[in-house]
């Protein structure tokens, strides 16, 4: 694959992640922080199609630009900490341990660690550990559902993209 083609595809992926992030802000949430995390689909697609480095680039750019579209600067901090932690975890699971995990499992683990990263940041900012206990159970249950759903979507998208783009190297 040429460099130009790669950059173009990555740019499209990032913009799609941003669009998903934006659309998601219209969907009501069950609990604060318990979001669908649709943008994670694009992170996983990148991870499968390109690899760790590219996935992390997508995560960082999406995490910085996303909150700027609709949110606060503190939002950047939350999405960065969550995104990077979950990006690392998913990369390790997919690139090193993929024989043990399905995409749904990896996506769920990603969602779990996305929430953990955000909560750790929140308790750091608030200066209290109590938030962890109160929010963790709800966010974990949400992660099971959204993680499975996102993993499933990723699987279908990948099946389609691999046929159409023939970009897997």
């Amino acid at each position: 694959m040429t460099k130009t083609r790669k950059i173009t595809i990555l740019a499209i992926i990032i913009s799609q992640a941003l669009v998903l992030h934006y659309i998601e802000s219209f969907i009501p949430v069950l609990a604060p922080g318990a979001k669908l995390g649709l943008a994670n689909i694009m992170t996983m697609v990148t991870l499968v199609l390109f690899g760790f480095k590219e996935a992390l680039i997508v995560v960082v750019i999406r995490s910085v630009l996303g909150p700027l579209l609709g949110g606060s600067v503190t939002g950047i901090l939350y999405s960065l900490s969550g995104g990077i932690l979950s990006g690392f975890i998913m990369s390790v699971l997919y690139l090193k341990l993929d024989i043990y995990f399905s995409l749904m499992g990896i996506s769920t683990a990603g969602a779990v660690f996305h929430n953990i990263g955000q909560l750790l940041t929140a308790s750091w900012i608030f200066g209290t550990i109590g938030i962890l206990y109160t929010y963790l159970p709800v966010l974990m249950l949400a992660a099971v559902v959204t993680g499975y759903f996102n993993g499933l979507v990723t699987r279908y998208i990948l099946g389609y993209l691999e046929k159409k783009l023939e970009i897997r190297n």
């Binding site: 960082v60 910085v64 606060s72 600067v73 503190t74 950047i76 901090l77 960065l80 929140a122 900012i125 608030f126 200066g127 209290t128």
Partner: peptide, 19 residues
């Protein structure tokens, strides 16, 4: 980038904790 963001958010966030 992360360090800068931490600094910025440290200044602007007005979340309430009890000390």
């Amino acid at each position: 980038l992360i360090l800068v963001l931490f600094l910025v958010s440290g200044c602007i966030s007005n979340t309430q904790g009890q000390h």
